[in-house]
Amino acid sequence: MPATPRIVFLDAGTVDDLPAFARFDELGDFASYALTSPEQLLERAAGATVLITNKVALSAETIEQLPELQLICVAATGTNNIAKEAAAARGIPVRNVAGYSTDSVAQLTLTALFTVAMDLLHLNREVYSGNYSRAKDFTLWRQPFYELRGQRYGIIGLGTIGRRVAELATAYGAEVVYYSARGNDHDAPYTRMELDEFLATCDVVSIHCALSEQTDGVLDLDRLRQMKSSAYLVNVARGGIVVEQDLVTALDEGAIAGAAVDVFREEPLPADHPYLRVRNRDKLLLTPHIGWASVEARTRLIEGIMQNIRQGV
């Protein structure tokens, strides 16, 4: 790598508000763009020795047209937007940042669960609408809610984030079990279950696995109907793991009590997405893929990218 590398961050809009972002200038000739469209990609990447991308796809054709490129840094954990074989053929390392968002995603997982299971959005509206002010009693609710203590909390994917969620659920007194799509046992103090029993017995199911051939669409309508009608589903992993229309059907027919979703097969969420047509919106909490995005997590991400650049080729 040259003494002064030319570094281009193609889609920095989700991290360029942080103080740590200014430190990229210390590493070389640095340029950044909030977003880069496919039409803008080659012009902006031309001459770069280091490319940083979050979601911008780098195809084999694109990589071949960037003769000076020596390093690709992914501002995320997943690298499926990179033609890695083409990069390897050129001797170009592809470096990601793992583990930066563990606590942030785990925090949202429990927050989202409690928000939907305790009916908090509805209760907030009841206070602001004046219905609580007109109530005859000092308290108000429309449906019972339960403590997590003593309930079975099921985790799909016992990786770094899944283990952190397991720790939090255990701290609340839940019984944690897990399902592994690969059928692997993990060195962890939790019981691994097969999917049928897992779905039929868990009071909460939260998803923390990668999207793969084994997990793509694994939670379809038949699987969702296996769950308890009192159970809650939380998906903070990848949208494609749950068949999205089937989740709406399951909620509308009362197959499960509620769900919280932070990830979608297509992002941003299309305006005609089936989630937006769910009958009772209080049963489906939707957040715009924010689980990864605490200030601390995004700062760790920037620091990880800079460390990957410092390592050179």
Rank of each mutant, 00 (worst) to 15 (best):
R6A: 02
R6L: 02
F9N: 07
L10T: 04
G13N: 11
A22I: 02
A34R: 15
S37M: 06
Q40C: 00
R44L: 08
A46P: 01
A48S: 13
K55R: 14
A57K: 12
L66Y: 11
E68S: 14
N81C: 02
K84W: 01
A88T: 03
G91Y: 08
V97I: 13
A98V: 08
G99S: 10
Y100S: 03
Y100I: 02
T102F: 04
D103T: 07
V105F: 07
A112D: 11
L113W: 13
D119H: 15
L121H: 09
N131H: 15
T139N: 10
W141L: 09
I161W: 04
G162Y: 10
A166R: 12
A166N: 06
L168R: 13
A171K: 02
Y172C: 15
V177M: 13
R182T: 12
N184L: 15
D187W: 08
E197M: 03
D203A: 04
S206H: 02
T215C: 11
T215D: 11
V218Y: 08
R223E: 03
S229T: 14
S229W: 00
L233Q: 09
N235K: 06
V236M: 14
V236G: 00
A237P: 04
R238P: 02
L247D: 08
L247S: 03
E267V: 05
R281S: 12
L284T: 09
G291W: 01
R298P: 01
I305Y: 01
Q307E: 15
Q307M: 03
I309A: 07
Q311M: 14
